[in-house]
Design a protein around this nucleic acid. Structure first.
Lengths: 254, 254
DNA sequence: ATCTCCTTATTACTCCGACATATTACAGGA
DNA sequence: TCCTGTAATATGTCGGAGTAATAAGGAGAT
């Protein structure tokens, strides 16, 4: 308890260039606090119903000002993780109040060891949304959409999923499809699902070098969408998600 | 510009009990500011790329402290609506960065006259997610789930959708289905979709008294889920969403 | 004339200390 | 036992001061 301090700010102090804490440029202090608390909550370190220490006490423990701490709490509140009330304190909300599809919350969930069941839930959502999105994309895609998908696919071929560039291309591909639906709500999901795909892909790579060549699956989806074959696109995407789930599941249970 | 002030706090000042502003008990000041700015952004009053006035200026204009204003900005930042950087100021992000499925953002979107296209997008999402959810619910529902649905259905029969109690029962029914899927990601969508259903239902009621008796549709879905008929549940839910879209569309275009 | 590097001004960021407000918890009385 | 009023406490709000980061503009070199 008493030695939990100094995580956010310089711990040692005199080492010249080693500022490798959670605070880079572009990462504000309150963002770092929110990240710390967010991962702590998502990892189960604070359970729903738990009451956090008072503002003054907690801010002092973290060695930050009350303002910075409060702003971090506002972020968590905005994402449905906690709720603050005068006199009652700040308590962690039940899990069904959490905005699990918020990209940042998703990142926090995957910061530690991710819950297997939750990964399955995300794939179930992908299996529902992405085939339907592919169906719509096949109907509504423009020439520009097709070009974006083609470029992303080519980039996936060049790099592999083992590289960050390859994963970025993978995300671009899925994003291009969801954007082609011309549906803002689906595009919002795109960011969340894209993040999930990214994390799970990393896990796949962590386990074994290259579980399966993902290009053919993606190419089938692309061909169907480019051809305007709605049902074919939906089916191909369904296969793609199923295979991805299979690979990820085998990578996580070993 | 100069006369935009005094909206958040007491305007007159001497009226004894008339505090009917956007600040009830349980609604903090920074929440009210976030609401005000959020609705302004969602309604297009601030376009993506616009830069807000500086902290000091804007806080002064709103007649609130900088702390409260900053905490409100953190909320908007957490929902992807704005981004703040030193020297550059706080600017509204492009629409594809907005967390449109965040319940609060959704509420802001429906605070004014909602965009017709966006409502169509939401129904398209419902048409994708809810039938699939009904399919899963039919497979996984427990006796408790069935009881919750049955109770909600009964409540819908007693009250009508014209009453708040009736709409709450409608939400409970859909929530019960999504909870029965035992999928946390889908349950998170539940909150968003539930909110959307709520707002659109209000619009339906606004137009004509009772466009259609919704009970038979809901009852069909319930029967199929209770019987464990996955495909039947999916199909019945598809019909329900289609009819709801039809009613809402005709109510909005008149 | 174009580009690079550096200086500078502006803006958000962080901190501090004080007071106001809301809500829980407890004590007292019916 | 239940209700009512009171007091304690944690969050909420405020104002100001100082720091750090960054975009813009200017000096210098190519």
């Amino acid at each position: 308890m008493a030695e939990e301090k100094g995580i956010l700010k310089e711990a040692g102090g005199s080492d010249g260039g080693g500022a490798k804490e959670a605070r880079g440029p572009g990462r504000r202090l309150h963002g770092a606090i929110a990240h710390k608390l967010g991962t702590a909550i998502l990892s189960g370190q604070y359970a729903p119903g738990d009451v956090l220490s008072g503002e003054v006490a907690f801010a002092e423990e973290l060695e930050v000002s009350r303002s910075a701490y409060r702003e971090a709490i506002q972020v968590l509140t905005a994402k449905g993780l906690v709720e603050s009330r005068p006199k009652a304190g700040t308590r962690v909300l039940p899990r069904n109040r959490w905005n699990l599809l918020d990209p940042e919350v998703l990142a926090w969930a995957f910061a530690g060891e991710p819950d297997v069941q939750f990964v399955r839930d995300l794939f179930e959502l992908r299996a529902i949304v992405e085939p339907a999105a592919a169906r719509l994309a096949a109907k509504r895609r423009t020439r520009d959409d097709i070009k974006l998908m083609k470029d992303a696919l080519a980039a996936m071929r060049r790099h592999t999923l083992a590289t960050e560039a390859g994963r970025a291309a993978d995300r671009d591909f899925h994003n291009a499809i969801l954007n082609a639906t011309r549906n803002d709500a689906l595009q919002t999901l795109s960011a969340s699902i894209g993040a999930a795909v990214n994390w799970t892909t990393q896990f796949k790579q962590r386990a074994r070098a290259l579980p399966r060549n993902p290009i053919p699956d993606h190419a089938r989806v692309f061909d169907a969408i480019a051809a305007g074959d709605a049902e074919g696109a939906a089916e191909a995407m369904g296969v793609l998600v199923d295979l991805a789930l299979e690979d990820t599941a085998s990578a996580m249970t070993r």
